[in-house]
């Protein structure tokens, strides 16, 4: 049993547990699943200034911050006590493509060639951390949700605007991966 837990978990186990978040949050507190809102609550809590969008009682949404805090803690447990034993088993074509771009180290979940402190003040760091992160924060709020709020919660409750958003998430990701990222990876 413990051996099975220590191996990487299959998609159907992960998908089912993530899907169960929807009824859990509804049943314990009438909350609809969504994670990107936590970024907004942080803005509202730390620096609301005089911006209408951040002038609300963020404490009423504090549950969301407790939830994301739990995610960070859970990830810590997952990466230490329950750490996956081997390197990431990448699909063959993806591994070959990334190797061509100089990314070969799959021993951790993130490639050290990109996501390390030594890249912070380089062009790579600017693009992958600062610009990438900015687009995630700006885009999700503009879209009114992220993968959890739209793709999972929104589709689960049959909301067509969420289907539009999910399709656009995918189109954006595909455009970046196929058209732009191949150039960014060689910078």
């Amino acid at each position: 049993m413990l051996e099975a837990i220590k191996q990487p978990w299959p998609w159907y186990v992960a998908g089912a547990l993530i899907g169960l978040t929807v009824p859990y949050l509804l049943l314990v507190g009438n909350k609809t699943f969504g994670i990107s809102s936590s970024l907004r609550h942080l803005c509202a809590a730390c620096m609301p200034a005089n911006i209408t969008f951040f002038k609300y009682d963020w404490k009423k949404e504090a549950w969301n911050l407790f939830f994301v805090g739990g995610i960070a803690l859970g990830a810590f447990i997952g990466a230490t006590l329950l750490a996956n034993p081997g390197p990431v088993q990448l699909a063959e074509p993806t591994a070959a493509y990334l190797a061509e771009k100089g990314i070969t180290d799959t021993s951790a979940l993130m490639p050290p060639e990109i996501f390390s402190w030594s890249n912070l003040f380089t062009l790579r760091g600017l693009i992958f951390f600062v610009i990438g992160g900015f687009m995630v924060g700006f885009g999700t709020r503009y879209a009114g949700g992220c993968t959890s709020g739209h793709a999972i919660m929104g589709l689960s409750s049959l909301q067509w605007p969420s289907l539009v958003a999910t399709i656009m998430f995918m189109l954006g990701g595909i455009a970046m991966t196929w058209l732009i990222l191949p150039h960014l990876l060689t910078l």
């Binding site: 990438g132 992160g133 687009m135 700006f138 739209h150 539009v164 595909i174 970046m176």
Partner: peptide, 14 residues
């Protein structure tokens, strides 16, 4: 849900 979602998608892949 069109423009914002597209921007997020671009950032997600990076």
């Amino acid at each position: 849900q069109i423009y914002g979602a597209l921007i997020f998608g671009l950032g997600w892949a990076i």
